[in-house]
Simulated scan of single mutants.
Amino acid sequence: MTRTEKKWSADVTEHSDALDLEPNIFASDDPKEIADSLKRSAEESHRRKVSPYQSAMSMLTFYINRAGKNLDADKRKTLEAAKDELRKDFDRPTKH
Rank of each mutant, 00 (worst) to 15 (best):
M1W: 11
R3Q: 08
R3C: 02
R3H: 07
T4P: 02
E5G: 06
E5T: 08
K6R: 14
K6I: 00
K7A: 10
W8Q: 11
W8N: 04
S9R: 15
S9L: 12
S9F: 07
D11T: 13
V12F: 13
T13H: 01
E14Y: 10
E14I: 07
H15G: 05
H15L: 13
H15V: 05
H15E: 11
H15A: 11
H15M: 04
D17N: 12
L19G: 00
L19P: 01
L21K: 01
P23C: 02
P23G: 02
F26K: 07
A27Q: 04
A27L: 11
D30S: 15
D30I: 14
P31I: 01
P31C: 06
K32Q: 01
K32R: 12
E33N: 10
E33M: 09
E33W: 02
I34R: 03
A35V: 14
D36R: 13
D36F: 09
S37F: 07
L38V: 01
L38E: 02
K39N: 03
K39M: 05
R40A: 09
S41D: 10
A42R: 01
A42C: 07
A42S: 10
A42L: 04
E43K: 09
E43Q: 11
E43M: 08
E44G: 06
H46F: 12
H46M: 13
R47D: 03
R47G: 03
K49I: 08
S51I: 05
P52T: 03
P52Y: 03
Y53T: 05
Q54F: 02
S55P: 01
S55R: 07
A56E: 02
A56C: 06
A56Q: 04
M57V: 14
M57N: 05
M57S: 10
S58C: 08
S58E: 10
S58M: 07
S58A: 11
M59V: 11
M59C: 11
F62V: 04
F62S: 07
F62G: 08
Y63I: 03
Y63C: 06
N65Q: 15
R66C: 03
A67C: 02
K69D: 14
N70A: 14
N70C: 09
D72Y: 06
D74V: 04
K75N: 00
K75M: 05
K77Y: 03
L79K: 12
L79E: 09
E80T: 11
E80L: 15
A81L: 10
K83G: 03
K83A: 04
D84V: 06
D84G: 09
E85L: 08
L86E: 06
R87F: 02
K88C: 04
D89N: 15
D89I: 01
D89C: 08
D89L: 10
F90A: 01
F90P: 03
D91G: 10
D91K: 15
D91R: 15
D91T: 09
P93N: 04
T94N: 10
T94K: 13
T94R: 13
T94C: 13
K95N: 08
H96Y: 04
H96C: 00
